[in-house]
Design a protein around this nucleic acid. Structure first.
Length: 862
RNA sequence: GCCGGGAUGGCGGAAUCGGUAGACGCGCUGGACUCAAAAUCCAGUGUUCGAAAGGAUGUGGGGGUUCGAGUCCCCCUCCCGGCACCA
């Protein structure tokens, strides 16, 4: 065997062996229990980044571990290939998105293979290919006919210069990213998935997912946001016509404190009032500026303007003024809200700003109300009604019940359960996406493209120019005939939200080549649900909610079984790195890649400065942030693989942090990981041929017993840590094993060494598969470590006669005691009280109390 | 703004049920090897007082519960993720 660890050679050889064996083909007909391990598929952006390496290493570690534990593992991979970056790259490089995407896929696939992932590549799916998206179109039509998909208008960011719709991320400080034009809100027709119809199920089924992080379930539950409230109306008369202004509130108990109502700028009442009020018309116009992102609207300054319209309070009969507010959105809820400044913090601020009346209607015992400043308790639901006529003294629930009943009696309202979740708008005015399979006919309306004419293929030779939708400028695409009447018609030119593709790919992997349906039902039944799903925490809400929704849609179409797609979920943290920069004259910053910087330390290794290696001049040390192009703090995984090998990259990724926490990049940490693997290699090279040694483990020297104990103790720890996905301490356990082996290697029994090394190699195998495989073979354990069984803990090796007990006095550590492992409490107490440190602190007095925690410590209270 | 999460040595992190804080690694210091360096190996390494023995102190900050708190409760600060069409 080679004396030096050479990752390049052994990794290529191991990967070749797996390739030759088709080692990771998942069998559809195995009798073993299945384990479907899925990592979120990548967007083919060009090359792998560290986040990918982390994600896929975690998935591979889980897959390989389960395989050794006897599971029939499926670990597929594919490409989330539609999306905006391809269009941007196309404009920058004048290359069609399709060509750019396919070449990225080719490169990244080779990169993924060089990581040594145990992926079943025969199941690869690529969402921008017609054989994939045709089934998306097929489902779209089924759902459209069923009414699960419908059309309505919705508000988008409109760039008036480029004449194009902008994504929220393309709006920077209220302006279009390319044109710099002030963005406007615009209403356009869109197709929607009726996800709200499934809101209750999406909420309650969270309780059936014990394998999901609480954190994610809480976020989803809050996102769905089921609320119990009252929908009611303020009647009004305008130009002699009776009408009603509807609002929804979860605080009907405060209804007697309403002092005004606010409507959206696009609300019919606002439009009406603006007609004869130029100032209001200007304000309504101003409200249309800016983007639609919630974060922007929530943080912007709340502005309003009065109208000369007033409506009638449904219970008091009083007149209530109508205001137009920039924070009220037409497309959400009723487009109007009741305002109770005394008990809603935002309304309070608004009322103070515009000197509107503030009317207390809730009180809490021993608290006094003042309209000078907002108090925490004003918004609580813990008070009782006051200044509320017949509702005075009622608590929240009683008041809501009584008020809802009175409103219902007048025909002006009723209790209503509502969700924060809104229907999912999927129309995108973009080119690089799945075409929406609808034909618009002037006589027949919106007609789905018949199944036998699917897929509606996206032309692949288009280079978008950033102005409007490319497909809408291509008559060869949109000109068509109506499938119903045969008349001239126009094809829909919007494409689907790319979240649609990623909502069902997990199901397609069960039968990726199926050309008779979206999925093969038998295969789907065999493989679904996904046993372990792994991906970034940033997908905690949208992607995971949409995929759960799609699973239910497919279930209701009879395509899949079960209610949920992902049994267990692991959300991994970001990969972060230090940042360095230099100030440029214009106040801008020049970001410098960490690899080009040398950090200077003081004597105690505290960083005191940094300089650019190239010119020796200082640079500023910035914060530690998510690896990104903009901060130039990304480290290219390829450089690490080339320099140290995939095993080192994988080991470092697993060791540096637990998977769900952020991972800080560290060059010296990578070197440390490499050093560890080299030490493993050197130890094995020194020991050579251990595979066939055998011995009677019941007759060992004390040292050999101690070594076995250490190995099995570490293994037990590692098993526990595997089960809770804490891989960093699995690596720690392997390091402890190596440390113990290096100490014992020259004196220990060959058979004990043989057992120990076999445990270490199998423990490392899921994490650093290439070196584990190579050494397994070289030391004569077998040809294929993948076929080896996971090591078992020998509990008898863990036993010991004596244990160490800590001695505390008043909770402070004062010493320790070696005792027989089964010594009874009375004797432990006696020994503890006789302990030198205890006697010293007792100063001849007596202990008040002695607490014995078996196997751990004794606390003497004096 | 709203929802969710996080904070432990110089650094990444460990501590499974409230019971030895700092495992494991990095860095640093000293030593061995070397003509020298790199690599490797050995030892030390929270802070602080002390020659040492030993003591004090210490898990973002402030309170509390407990024989005992990194862990449980209350309040606060800072950092990170998400925000699809907040009511």
């Amino acid at each position: 065997m080679q004396q030096t660890y050479s990752p390049k050679d052994i990794e290529a050889a191991a990967q070749q062996q797996w390739e030759n064996q088709q080692a990771f083909r998942a069998s559809d007909s195995s009798s073993k229990p299945k384990y479907y391990c899925l990592s979120m598929f990548p967007y083919p952006s060009g090359k792998l980044h560290m986040g990918h390496v982390r994600n896929y290493t975690i998935g591979d570690v889980l897959s390989r571990h389960h395989r050794m534990k006897g599971f029939n593992v499926m670990q597929p991979m594919g490409w989330d290939a539609f999306g905006l970056p391809a269009e941007n790259a196309a404009m920058a490089n004048n290359v069609p998105p399709a060509a750019w995407t396919y070449s990225n896929i080719e490169y990244m696939k080779q990169q993924l293979k060089s990581l040594g992932l145990g992926v079943d590549w025969s199941r690869e799916v690529t969402t921008c290919k017609p054989d994939y998206y045709r089934w998306e179109q097929w489902l779209f039509n089924r759902l459209f006919k069923k009414g699960v998909i419908y059309k309505k208008t919705s508000t988008v960011n409109w760039d008036p210069v480029d004449n194009t719709v902008l994504a929220n991320e393309q709006v920077i400080d209220g302006r279009g990213w390319r044109s710099g034009a002030q963005v406007e809100k615009r209403e356009i027709p869109m197709y929607f998935f009726r996800i709200t119809q499934y809101a209750d199920e999406l909420l309650t089924d969270l309780d059936t997912l014990p394998g999901w992080p609480e954190q994610v379930k809480t976020m989803q539950a809050n996102w769905i946001g089921k609320s119990y409230g009252v929908r009611f109306a303020f009647p009004y008369e305008l130009d002699g016509k009776q009408d009603k202004l509807w609002v929804y509130t979860t605080r009907a108990d405060t209804i007697m404190g309403v002092t005004f109502v606010a409507v959206a700028a696009e609300h019919p009442l606002a439009t009406y009032a603006a007609k004869k009020n130029p100032a209001l018309a200007a304000f309504v116009e101003e409200c249309k500026h800016g983007g639609v992102a919630e974060a922007d609207i929530a943080t912007m300054e709340k502005k309003g303007m009065p109208t000369d319209i007033s409506v009638t309070h449904p219970l008091t009969g009083e007149q209530v003024p109508v205001w137009v507010g920039n924070y009220v959105l037409m497309s959400y809820g009723e487009g109007a809200v009741m305002a109770v400044p005394a008990h809603d913090e935002r309304d309070f601020g608004f009322a103070k700003k515009y000197r509107l009346p503030i009317q207390q209607s809730i009180t809490v015992k021993d608290q006094s109300f003042s309209d000078a400043a907002w108090q925490e308790w004003y918004g609580d639901k813990n008070g009782v009604c006051v200044n509320s006529g017949r509702y005075d003294g009622l608590n929240f629930e009683q008041a809501v019940d009584a008020i809802a009943a009175d409103l219902a009696a007048k025909g002006l309202g009723e209790k209503k359960t509502q969700f924060r979740l809104r229907d999912w708008g999927i129309s995108r005015q973009r080119y690089w996406g799945c075409p929406i399979p609808i034909i618009h006919c002037s006589t027949c309306g919106d007609v789905p493209v018949p199944d036998d004419q699917l897929p509606v293929k996206l032309p692949e030779n288009v280079v978008p120019d950033g102005a409007g939708s490319p497909l809408a400028k291509m008559p060869e695409f949109y000109e068509c005939t109506c499938p119903q009447c045969g008349g001239k018609a126009r094809r829909e030119t919007d494409t689907m939200d790319t979240f649609v593709e990623s909502s069902w790919y997990y199901a397609r992997y069960a039968s990726p080549q199926c050309d008779t349906g979206m999925v093969d039902k038998a295969d789907a039944q065999k493989w679904l649900p996904v046993d372990q799903y792994i991906g970034g925490i940033e997908h905690a809400i949208l992607h995971l909610l949409y995929a759960r929704f799609f699973h239910k849609l497919m279930r209701d179409e009879g395509l899949v079984q079960g209610n949920e797609p992902f049994k267990n979920l692991l959300t991994q943290g970001m990969v972060v790195a230090p940042t360095f920069y230099r100030e440029l004259p214009a106040g801008k910053k020049l970001w410098i890649n960490p690899t080009e910087v040398e950090v200077e330390m003081d004597a105690k290794a505290r960083p005191i400065g940094a300089k650019l290696i190239a010119d020796g001049q200082p640079v500023v040390i910035g914060g530690t942030e998510k690896m990104s192009k903009s901060k130039n703090n990304g480290v290219d995984p390829q450089a690490i693989i080339d320099a140290y090998g995939a095993d080192t990259a994988r080991l470092f990724m697993m060791f540096a942090a637990p998977p769900d926490q952020q991972l800080e990049w560290s060059d010296s940490g990578v070197e440390g990981s490499f050093r560890f693997l080299r030490r493993v290699w050197n130890l094995c090279a020194e020991l050579n041929e251990l595979g066939h040694a055998s011995a009677d483990f019941s007759k060992l020297s004390a040292d050999d017993q101690a070594l076995r104990r250490e190995m099995h103790l570490a293994l037990k720890q590692a098993n526990f840590d595997f089960s809770r996905h804490q891989f960093n301490t699995v690596v720690s356990a392997a390091m402890k094993m190596l440390n113990a082996l290096e100490k014992a290697k020259s004196s220990a029994d060959r058979a004990v060494l043989g057992e120990s090394v076999s445990i270490l190699l199998r423990l490392l195998s899921p994490i650093t598969p290439h070196i584990a495989q190579t050494l397994w073979k070289e030391l004569g354990y077998g040809d294929d470590i993948l076929a080896a069984a996971w090591p078992e803990v020998d509990e008898s090796a863990l036993e010991q006669d004596e244990i160490e007990l800590m001695i505390q006095v008043n909770g402070k550590l004062r010493g320790s005691l070696r005792i027989a492992k089964d010594l009874d409490k009375a004797n432990i107490e006696r020994l503890a009280l006789a302990h030198e440190a205890v006697l010293r602190l007792l100063e001849g007095g007596t202990a008040k109390k002695v607490i014995v925690v078996p196997g751990r410590l004794v606390n003497v209270v004096i």
